[in-house]
């Protein structure tokens, strides 16, 4: 039996909205330590990794490890029926072919349940090594969203270069060119408004803006985002989801011929 209850149901709604365009389906792997998901987009260019810890839920029980195959478009349809203030409970029997989602309004006067049909999904699991990155940049998630959105209107790819001067995002297209440089800035009093650049060595990599723009759909989940870069490796974009866990995106770089 699997059961996970979260008072702040809007977090689940936001998570699924952040993922559903990148990955159409994937397995929720549940165990006694929490719920994880790893899924690649259909072209194997980017990967989403979600970790929700058992102790981040208001109630969590999982007697048996299970892989629940989810179609995110369908899960999104059901979660749209939940109110933003609702408590959401996920439930499944062992070896179930459905996942039950129960929504309770804040004052308990409306309770609804929906059963989502589960799928059988063969998924490849990629091993992502823990490693030291050449550059790590923490910045307000809204700033990241603005940069990738603005640059997407100019070009298709972005060159991200981290140097001691700061982190520069450059693109070009039919309209012309664009460069946006962010500098280390710890002046704002609120930590979530700061930009912190941790540079071990200069690095420059090119990425498809379409995906970076898509990652920014996770903006409502966290005030800050962390970008990690190393030469010839995928970029790692991470959002901490409060005490519940994190959502991580990896995107393969463009490679010169």
């Amino acid at each position: 039996m699997f059961e996970a209850r979260i008072t702040q149901g809007s977090v689940l709604k936001k998570l699924v909205e952040a993922l559903k365009e990148l990955v159409t389906e994937g397995n929720f792997d549940v165990s006694s330590t929490g719920l994880t998901l790893q899924a690649m987009d259909s072209s194997h260019v980017c990967l989403v990794s979600l970790t929700l810890r058992d102790d981040g839920f208001d109630h969590y029980r999982c007697d048996r490890n299970m892989a629940m195959g989810i179609h995110f478009g369908n899960l999104s349809k059901i979660l749209k029926c939940a109110g933003n203030e609702d408590t959401i409970t996920l439930k499944a029997e062992d070896n179930a072919d459905t996942l039950t989602l129960m929504f309770e309004s804040a004052n308990q006067d409306r309770i609804s349940d929906f059963d989502l049909k589960l799928m059988s999904i063969e998924s490849e699991h990629l091993g992502i090594p823990d490693q030291d990155y050449s550059a790590e940049i923490k910045m307000p998630s809204a700033e990241y969203q603005r940069i990738v959105r603005d640059l997407t209107s100019i070009g298709d790819t972005v060159l991200i270069s981290a140097t001691k001067e700061g982190i520069k995002f450059s693109t070009s297209g039919d309209v012309g060119t664009a460069n946006i440089t962010l500098r280390h800035n710890t002046t704002p009093e609120k930590p979530e408004e700061q930009t912190i650049i941790d540079l071990k060595e200069p690095v420059a990599l090119t990425f498809a803006l379409r995906y970076l723009n898509n990652f920014s759909k996770a903006t409502p989940l966290a005030p800050q985002v962390k970008l990690s870069l190393t030469k010839d490796l995928p970029i790692f974009v991470e959002y901490q989801v409060g005490d519940l866990g994190n959502v991580r995106f990896f995107l393969a770089p463009k490679i010169d011929d």
């Binding site: 072209s43 990967l47 091993g127 498809a208 990896f250």
Partner: peptide
């Protein structure tokens, strides 16, 4: 012109 890399070439399947 740069080509789009695939994640499988950077991370191995476990």
């Amino acid at each position: 012109k740069a080509n789009q890399g695939r994640l499988d070439t950077f991370f191995s399947v476990v």
